[in-house]
Design a protein around this nucleic acid. Structure first.
Lengths: 189, 189
DNA sequence: AATCTTCCATAGTGATCGATACGAAACCTG
DNA sequence: CAGGTTTCGTATCGATCACTATGGAAGATT
């Protein structure tokens, strides 16, 4: 997973995987069928172990702004963990790919789209309870938040520290509608 | 350039370049020495022909906020031009690379760092003339703006339309300090 | 006009890719 | 302890990578 995270799908050779896992090629193929299946296994593992902050942030019983704050600050921390590759595997895994690997690139794109959709869903919920203005486009704001996270992923890959990413996240938060304008109204019914 | 832009440095094979350029391999090597030099030529060409909006935005005689607005909206348009690959070559070219291509990845990283530095320089100038609060960290804000542009590049690659990118840019602008607070003071001396 | 030089496309180079066939070692059974 | 089976590591597969040597055609010179 770390190798795919660091070098991406195509640039990670079986020789690197073999050395890192201490397995012989037949062992790898017996265990994971082929390189593509192994990468997908790494994807699900990454999803389960490295980015739990996102689900936690989006499902926590807090205000919408606080949820987004946790999401962005969680990303700042997750994208710059010591000993781990910088950024997000969903971004670094295969942003550009050869025609042969387009299926992998499409799968990562689907992951990114799903993340954005999860954000949009949380925003819609927030708008429903009065956390956000009614006229606001949750899709547009979700695309902004997802975009900021993707941008943080690249900044992290370029060596940004966790503090710098936190500042970036805090700055991005300022673009959100002010909190609490309709928040009292959420307790009216 | 389009092939590198679309598929990245390593995933673009000489066979693809040969077919696209209508040249034989020796012609390619006579003209460009090797693949790495050809990619660098494509980088400079990209810099000259595709992202002039950035230099224009940062050097225009307008307020700092307007400069950033032009920068982000220019990116929205440049990253989603019809007939061109989505996103920015500096991001897509080699976000993740094999150990053999790390020199290329480092070069692209340097381009991204230079872009961020150019933004920071413009912000510092703006702060000097009172466009931005004195206590503000231009490096932090520049990292945010550069990060948003990088995020837009990924959103564009994921198929975001120019309108969606414009909305993202407008949203990102809301994170900037309000304009005009010290602007009148800029005409005092 | 004949020869010589120069250029250039085809064919192929070693290296490496992902993936696998074969020989050997180990294990279970009798 | 012997025989049959299964498992597993090595050596290698065809394909493709970036890159280049060689045969043949075109043009220049006498």
């Amino acid at each position: 997973m770390h190798l795919f995270w660091e070098h991406g799908y195509e640039a990670t050779s079986l020789a690197m995987l073999r050395e890192a896992m201490g397995l012989t090629p037949p062992q790898i193929y017996n265990a994971f069928t082929d390189k593509e299946t192994l990468f997908r296994k790494a994807l699900t593992r990454y999803h389960e172990t490295e980015i739990g902050f996102a689900l936690e942030a989006l499902s926590a019983p807090v205000s919408t702004r606080e949820a987004v704050r946790r999401l962005l600050l969680g990303a700042a921390e997750a994208y710059s963990r010591p000993g781990k590759p910088g950024g997000c595997l969903f971004v670094s895994g295969a942003l550009a790919a050869s025609p042969q690997a387009q299926a992998i690139a499409d799968e990562l794109k689907a992951y990114r789209k799903a993340s954005e959709a999860a954000i949009a869903e949380r925003l819609a919920k927030g708008r429903a309870v009065g956390d956000l203005p009614e006229g606001l486009s949750v899709e547009g704001l979700a695309k902004y938040i997802a975009g900021v996270m993707n941008g943080m992923s690249i900044q992290a890959r370029d060596g940004a520290s966790v503090e710098e990413l936190r500042i970036l996240a805090q700055t991005a938060l300022a673009a959100l509608p002010a909190e609490g304008q309709n928040q009292d109204a959420s307790s009216k019914d």
